[in-house]
Design a binder for these strands. Structure first.
Length: 573
RNA sequence: CGGAGCGUAGCGCAGUCUGGUAGCGCGUUUGCUUCGGGAGCAAAAGGCCGCGGGUUCAAAUCCCGCCGCUCCGACCA
């Protein structure tokens, strides 16, 4: 392919609305163009990479025995109402009506749709197991689209769904997909780590997220370098040391405190935040509950929500807090709230004594010398805090680190939530009706495109892994007006294409510097320079994008094909 | 949804406070000279100054309303 025949537009200046490197490069290298907030058009170069990622996903899904289908993006509301998610998804889902007022949604995912689909086809255990997948555009009305393709309103996702006869078979399907995902990311040249995640509303279901570790990532991940334990911060476990405190000999005492926040209290009392406990009031299914954690900790809302088995869960408003505690905001505590509500405390506080807490009294008053065992009525001690760097690993004697990650995929055991709702059943060999066991598996294809760039770039531009680069080779034709030189480039192009190596010839009437800069910016894995000067002095010049500028090889045009093959082989995946 | 900021040429920005001829850099077009890491000179094209209303002799500039975008936060099966 010739550069001058292609719609390529690189930008010298970085777009004003891009924050992270991968977003800047996506736009600067001419891969995508913004249409509106969270909406992007793919330019030809971007489309080529996107298609290559799709193809890798497709091949690995097929290899794992999944079957490709495609279902409508526009999904009737009835499907979503069957599971109650029409309301549960809330404003995150794009909803619309057709001309006869039928309600529909632009699919953010397709569990309902696929369950209904399979239910209409499968009726016997002989047809199971089955896993289907589609690569389809998905829609989410994001509260705040950002970072380019990372969090957009419309994105390309591969979603697969498995249907099995029982839990053991479902397990097999799950790990089958898990391993397919490992292959997908490896072939994309991505280091993606599987991390344990929270099952969300699905309760204690097994689920792994695949994350690309990057500072620009939106998710926090707890990671133990010693045993390799990795978990989403929402789900991360940590080991608790027994609380060493002696029972408190001092009596509970009031302490007037003109300081509401932990930070201010540290200044006022001159005591560390680990000797304080903060108490938060939440509404769980509309009923107030209190959570008590150490001053240097943050409540993990996911863990807390699960602990109280709540459907709706949110921080209580100020008036509720006053009502429950009887105290001004900032003076809630675990000792005798005005209204008797369940109080849950973090495991770290079990046996804690000599603590400072809010007093639940009508005034800016705290208690000192609080002994949890003596002074508080705690419903249950449980792990309800967010893991922090320095916490002990729950699985070995290592110490947890906190990393940032970009979630590029997730595998999820769904159980029977959807199959029950749709009555998706099969008959076993005893003619009994059984509910199918499901799993769902997503790969964010467009997000993966950007994650690759985020993980693989330098100051000059993108450094594409060969498997997903828009073109594997760029030929910088320095003298396009000289027929003999141009012929060498065209011959080489034809030879490469015949060998199955996609090649772009930069045949523009531009100065060499411009071509080199653009080649580096777009990031083709191998660059071949064909120029009059070079040909006279020995041949064409070959250089990998991922090696130093000075490391070039001059080879005769006849030897170029082999040398390029070799360079591609050495280039990152 | 709360807080902050920004909408001026394809892109990046100045001009707005203090009303008076629409500007700069990059990119684009043409010519000449250059030619191995984003060249130089010359000429040119390209604007509903986000939209609507108001004030004024006169509005990119002041006032009101709306829309859009970006950042921080909240939110994120």
């Amino acid at each position: 392919m010739k550069w001058t025949k292609m719609l390529i537009q690189t930008l010298r200046e970085t777009p004003a609305d891009a924050e992270i490197d991968s977003h800047k490069l996506l736009v600067r290298a001419g891969l995508v163009r913004k249409v509106a907030g969270g909406l992007y058009s793919y330019m030809p170069l971007g489309m080529r990479s996107l298609k290559k990622i799709q193809q890798i996903v497709r091949e690995e899904m097929d290899r794992a025995g999944a079957q490709e289908i495609v279902m409508p993006i526009l999904q009737p509301a009835e499907l979503w109402k069957t599971t109650g998610r029409w309301d549960a998804m809330g404003p995150n889902m794009f909803k619309l009506r057709d001309r006869s007022e039928r309600e529909a949604a632009l699919g953010p995912t397709a569990e309902e749709e696929v369950t209904d689909f399979i239910k209409g086809i499968v009726s016997s255990y002989r047809q199971l197991p089955v896993t289907v997948y589609q690569i389809q555009w998905k829609f989410r009305d994001e509260t705040r689209p950002r970072f380019g393709l990372m969090r957009s309103k419309e994105f390309l996702m591969k979603d697969a769904y498995s249907f099995d006869v029982d839990a053991d078979a479902a397990d097999k399907s799950y790990w089958n997909m898990y391993h397919a995902y490992e292959r997908i990311y490896e072939r994309c040249g991505l280091k993606a780590v599987p991390v344990q995640a929270d099952g969300g509303d699905m309760g204690d279901s097994l689920t792994h997220e695949f994350h690309v570790l990057a500072d620009a990532g939106e998710d926090g991940i707890a990671w133990c370098p010693k045993c390799g334990y990795a978990a989403n911060l929402e789900a991360a476990e940590k080991r608790f040391e027994p609380c060493a405190a002696e029972p408190c000999t001092e009596p509970l005492a009031e302490a007037p405190t003109p300081a509401k926040t932990i930070e201010d209290m540290v200044k006022f009392f001159g005591v560390g935040p680990e000797k304080m406990a903060k108490t938060l009031v939440y509404l769980a299914d509309g009923k107030p509950v209190m959570f008590c954690v150490r001053g240097d900790r943050e409540l993990n809302e996911v863990k807390a929500k699960r602990l109280v088995c709540a459907k709706t869960f949110a921080l209580a408003d100020f008036s509720t807090v006053r009502e429950v505690t009887g105290a001004p905001i900032g003076y809630a505590g675990p000792v005798k709230p005005k209204i008797d509500v369940p109080i849950y405390a973090d495991l770290e506080l079990e046996g804690a004594s000599g603590m400072l807490t809010g007093a639940n009294l009508d005034g800016e008053i705290d208690y000192k010398n609080v002994d949890f065992a003596r002074d508080c009525k705690i419903a249950k001690y449980a792990d309800i805090t967010i893991a922090q760097a320095g916490d002990k690993c729950a699985h070995c004697d290592g110490t947890l680190e906190i990393k940032r990650g970009i979630e590029v995929g997730q595998v999820f055991k769904l159980g029977t939530k959807y199959s029950k709702a749709f009555n998706a059943v099969y008959k076993n060999d005893a003619l009994e009706e059984k509910v199918m066991i499901m799993g769902c598996y997503g790969v964010g294809v467009s997000r993966t495109l950007q994650a690759i760039i985020e993980q693989s770039h330098d100051k000059d531009g993108i450094v594409w892994p060969a498997s997903v680069a828009p073109f594997q080779v760029v030929i910088d034709l320095l003298d396009p007006q000289e027929a003999e030189v141009a012929q060498v480039a065209s011959d080489l192009e034809a030879a490469l294409e015949a060998a199955g190596i996609d090649t772009l010839v930069d045949d523009r009437e531009e100065r060499p510097g411009v071509k080199f800069k653009d080649a580096d910016l777009i990031g083709f894995p191998v660059r071949v320079v064909v120029g009059a000067k070079g040909l006279k002095s020995g041949g064409v010049e070959i250089k990998r994008r991922d090696e130093d500028k000075t490391k070039t090889r001059i080879v005769a045009p006849e030897a170029a094909l082999d040398a390029i093959r070799q360079a591609l082989g050495q280039s990152k995946s």
